[in-house]
């Protein structure tokens, strides 16, 4: 199933990616091949098979509500693309 240009542009928009025309062509082809690959699953007959909500057969794993040490501010901000005081600094978001 070939993906439409609009679908690829929309997914790029959702991922906040700006694509050049070249990239757009490249990824449209690649994404189509990925979706086709996954689509093979549709050939399986799942008649009478209960939908699976989770792959692991275990449940109810909890931790107690007890504080654990946090990172220092400097450690937390070590990978920040930009820092202002003790904050991450990001380009203004209007939306």
């Amino acid at each position: 199933m070939a993906l439409t240009g609009d679908q690829v542009r929309w997914v790029a928009h959702l991922a906040r990616l700006e694509l050049t025309e070249e990239e757009f062509q490249l990824f449209t082809g690649q994404l189509t091949r990925i979706v086709d690959f996954i689509d093979q699953l549709q050939q399986l007959n799942t008649e009478g098979v209960e939908p699976l909500a989770h792959a692991l057969p275990i449940h109810n794993v909890f931790r107690p509500d007890e504080p654990a040490p946090s990172l220092s501010v400097d450690e937390a901000l070590a990978n920040a693309p930009a820092r202002k005081g003790d904050f991450y600094s990001v380009p203004a978001v209007l939306d």
Partner: peptide, 19 residues
């Protein structure tokens, strides 16, 4: 296990899980 207390200094209650 990071604290949920209100009004802590900025970015002082985070860890690899929540960031």
């Amino acid at each position: 296990g990071c604290s949920t207390q209100f009004g802590l200094p900025p970015n002082s209650a985070t860890c690899p899980v929540c960031i």
